[in-house]
């Protein structure tokens, strides 16, 4: 599908519709870019700082009390950790969930249309005790909150 659009855009450009095509791409909000591919670059990082830089482009994170993250303090099972996030930040466009010490720190990226509230649940895997960081992109700023979740091997099962 991406291919088709590229070809389409290419064609448009060649017939001299450059202005129309480029402005359409810029104006179109994130959520409406329905045919974007999985962001391979963001998920390629194995270090938290690099993953974070990939997301924000180096822009500073702002600690926010308007993001509430519900996650257990101690994981009963590191393969299945219930996670809920809600936020009252206006104009939230994206939510990123990262587990600092996971082999791939970025777990998920949610792209929200104005028709959904910032109220999400998911289930995460965690390799070891780590901070879980949730970032909300709203109004061009990256807001975050974090929490530590303890994970160890089970006493019996291992």
């Amino acid at each position: 599908m991406m291919q088709t659009r590229r070809q389409f855009i290419k064609k448009t450009l060649t017939i001299g519709g450059a202005f129309w095509a480029s402005s359409w791409l810029i104006v179109k909000p994130l959520w409406a870019q329905t045919e974007t591919l999985w962001p391979i670059g963001l998920f390629a990082h194995s270090k938290y700082q690099a993953a974070l830089k990939g997301i924000t482009g180096g822009q500073a994170l702002i600690a926010s009390k308007d993001i509430t993250m519900t996650i257990p303090r101690i994981a009963e099972n590191g393969a299945l950790i219930p996670f809920t996030l809600s936020s009252t930040l206006e104009k939230a466009e994206r939510v990123f969930v990262l587990v600092k010490k996971n082999p791939v720190p970025l777990v998920a990226r949610f792209t929200l249309s104005p028709q959904v509230n910032t109220q999400l649940s998911a289930r995460l895997k965690m390799a070891e005790t780590s901070k879980v960081v949730s970032i909300v992109l709203a109004n061009g700023q990256y807001y975050y909150t974090d929490k530590t979740v303890k994970v160890t091997l089970g006493g019996c099962g291992g």
């Binding site: 959520w31 409406a32 329905t34 974007t36 999985w38 962001p39 963001l42 998920f43 393969a79 299945l80 950790i81 809920t84 587990v99 996971n102 791939v104 970025l106 777990v107 998920a108 990226r109 949610f110 792209t111 929200l112 249309s113 104005p114 028709q115 959904v116 509230n117 109220q119 999400l120 649940s121 998911a122 289930r123 995460l124 895997k125």
Partner: peptide
């Protein structure tokens, strides 16, 4: 996630999401 054929939410994920993934969302 689409509502009446219109995309309202997209989730891009890695393998850090649990086996048999579960998600919940809230639509206006």
């Amino acid at each position: 996630v689409r509502h009446n054929d219109k995309i309202i939410l997209t989730t891009d994920m890695g393998s850090g999401i649990s086996r048999n993934p579960y998600f919940s969302f809230e639509m206006k």
